[in-house]
Amino acid sequence: MDEPAAMQPNRDPRATLPDLLEVLLNKGVHLNLDLIISVADVPLIGVNLRATIAGMETMLEYGMMNAWDRDTRAWVQKSLSAHLPLAEGEEVIAKMAGGHYHEGFYRTWRPGTAYLTNRRLIIHRRDPVETLWQAPLASITAIEPIRERSIGGESRTRLHVTLEDESRSMLSAVDPERLISLVRGQLGHSPAAEADELPGAADGPVLEGPMWYLETRAEGGTWRAGHASLTEADGLVWKSPLDGRARVRTSLLEDPRYTLEEHENPTDEQQVLVLDSAAGTTRLAAPDVVRWHEELTTRKGAGDGARG
């Protein structure tokens, strides 16, 4: 590799055909004519909504509806309510694959989709259509993760839900921790405050929640929405659900330093978190940014120890 000349992109169809197929056929991409047209009620045939839906599904799984504008949110609510009956004013906050452990005449896991709305937690099956389990949020007194060993010997985390009538149910979800933290967010508990009381909290995150990362692009900075967690082992990790890997992983940094700085950002906070290291400067925004700063500075020693 002594060639100093800049690498040239390749547009030979023999090399790019698989990518073109993906782009024009499967993943959609393109102008989402279909989406817009279906809203405008212009009749179209042969349209492909899958790509758009796939992107939205990812965001929904993360409970990141806020990342969209009002019109898009309205459209998503409309398309969701086609399968899931919603009450007036009820909005879906998150959706992910899930299930309910049925303990009636027989005991079995019944798979479906877990929906969290601003009113209810629901396990719903689309085909054949049936609401497998549901509870109004107001009736939930506790939601906790419990570890369970599957038949294969794998350890899985389930959701244990207690209602005000003291009935208990076991649910599953593809990302149980996130669903629990989203439910608690809706219940008005601070997910961080409660993490300390959990059984097995030692290996769970010290703090976690939505966080924005300021990325420098050719024409300025862009705040990117994502999810952050702070654990003893990995330090601060930030990742966008749209990316392949985590952009911030402080356990890999030498001597990370944290300060607070006034900076325009997508949260209600005045300040953002500035992370300095030999690898450069990173700006992060989060609700409760002061708490993040506090935990990061007190735990700095622990993070350093985990390196290598």
């Binding site: 790019t16 929405a225 325009e264």
Partner: peptide, 20 residues
């Protein structure tokens, strides 16, 4: 390294990820 292409992946007007 592929391209140059028309902006196939950026014509989408719905997912406004990262906007303030």
């Amino acid at each position: 390294f592929l391209g140059p292409w028309p902006p196939y992946s950026f014509a989408d007007m719905t997912a406004t990820e990262g906007s303030m």
